[in-house]
Amino acid sequence: MAQHVLVVFPHPDDETFGCGGTIALFTQSGIPVTYVCATLGQMGRNMGKPFFATRESLPHVREAELEKACQVLGIKHLIKLGLRDKMIEFEEPEALTSRFEQIIREVRPSLVLTHYPGYAVHPDHNALGEVTIRAISRLSADERPVVYAHAFARMCQEAIGPPDINNDISAVVDMKLAAIRAHRSQSQLMFGSKSSISRFLEQESFWTYRF
């Protein structure tokens, strides 16, 4: 099967902070990346610093930022699912799972990046990671893509052990930084202190999900 990466996250900027370097490494080596972004981050609390977005303009601002970041990272195919921020865990799970099963069957990825259910802090992260993994588990073992799950809950290593994939992203750090900057409304606040950005620029870690 030709290589193709499918990225599934709920919020514009999840793709950048968690795995922008990894995505850039793929696209730089000619591997196509499709991104399903489930919401527009409508309920985000960061409005820029100084704030320039309102609750009502934020989805439009973040949609434009998302498109810019995808361009920067070399993501050619962006699917905006149109769900509402914070509400994923309240959607009907079966409908959402079959929607993802359909997307996965169409895209036929060799690798899926998503959040590790239960260890990804935000309820949307956990809910969407769970739906994605449930959809993939419905495929037969030989059609099933590899899943790199992203976890960052404080105690996650005690529960799921250390990550087995640790990508050195130093070759693409400028691309990642440009993508972080593209998410202006969300990242301006972090540029105040060097340390809060630098932790995103070293390596990116994932757990290969065991079905």
Partner: peptide, 29 residues
């Protein structure tokens, strides 16, 4: 805003939204 909606918000010292109250004659998006 242009649609005549009243947007009120409370921002903390970092500019993050902590509270919002908005009124509109038409449904919000």
């Amino acid at each position: 805003d242009q649609e005549g909606r009243l947007l009120l918000a409370g921002h903390d010292e970092e500019g993050r939204l902590a509270v919002a109250l908005e009124l509109s004659l038409n449904p919000f998006e």
